[in-house]
Amino acid sequence: MTIQRQNPPAPHATPGYHHVTAVSGRTTVHLAGQCPLGLDGLIVAGDVLAQADQVVADTATALRAAGATADDVLRTVSYVATADRAVLFAVWDQFTGSAIGPAFSTASTLLGVTCLEYSGQLVELDITAAVS
C-alpha cells in the first residue's frame, strides 16, 4: 500500500514532478477533467489564473469525495488553451502553489492546446489518484 515516485538518472532532471509513479495495494480513482465552471454551469469570470483557481477548488472537492487528498495523486495532465509558454508556466505555478500543489509532484504533463470544450475555457485538469 505505497506510492513510489522516482526520477531515474536519465532522462532529464525535472522542475519538481517525477518521471515515474508506481502504486501497489490501492484503489485507483479517475477524476473527470475538471473545468472552470461555477455552480451556474458557466465559465468563471476572469483570466486564465482565475480559471485555474476554480479548477483547483473543484479538484480538491472531487478528491475529497473520493476519499483522496493531493498526496494520493498518481498523475496529472494540465491543459491550457494557449501557445504562450509564459501562460503555461503561470498556470503551472498557480497549480503547484495551491492547496492541491502536492498533486503536481507526481507524474505530470502540461500541455498547450488549441481549444477546450466550453467557449472561453482556458484550463482543464485531469487527475488519477489512488486510495487505500
Rank of each mutant, 00 (worst) to 15 (best):
M1V: 07
T2A: 09
Q4T: 15
Q4K: 14
Q6D: 09
N7C: 14
P9E: 11
A10E: 12
P11I: 04
P15Q: 09
T21Q: 07
S24N: 10
S24Y: 06
G25K: 07
R26T: 06
V29P: 11
V29L: 15
L31G: 03
P36T: 08
P36V: 03
P36H: 07
P36Y: 05
L37H: 03
G38S: 12
L39R: 11
D40T: 00
L42C: 07
I43D: 01
I43P: 01
V44M: 04
A45D: 11
A45V: 00
L49V: 15
L49C: 00
A50I: 02
Q51L: 01
A52G: 14
D53Q: 12
D53M: 00
Q54C: 07
V55E: 01
V56S: 01
V56E: 02
A57Q: 09
A57C: 01
D58L: 14
L63I: 14
R64W: 12
A66M: 08
A66F: 04
G67P: 07
A70S: 15
A70L: 04
A70Q: 02
D72T: 05
V73R: 01
V73S: 02
L74S: 04
L74M: 13
V77M: 07
S78W: 03
S78N: 12
Y79A: 03
V80I: 15
A81G: 13
A81M: 09
T82W: 07
A83M: 06
D84F: 06
R85E: 15
A86G: 14
V87W: 06
L88H: 05
A90R: 13
A90S: 15
V91A: 04
V91M: 06
Q94F: 00
T96I: 15
G97F: 08
S98D: 12
A99C: 08
P102F: 09
P102C: 13
F104L: 12
F104S: 02
S105M: 08
S105I: 05
T106Q: 05
A107S: 14
L111S: 00
G112F: 04
T114L: 09
C115L: 00
L116K: 05
L116M: 12
L116G: 05
Y118G: 03
Y118T: 02
S119T: 12
V123F: 05
L125I: 09
L125F: 11
D126E: 14
I127A: 05
I127E: 03
A129I: 12
A130L: 10
V131L: 12
V131H: 06
S132K: 01
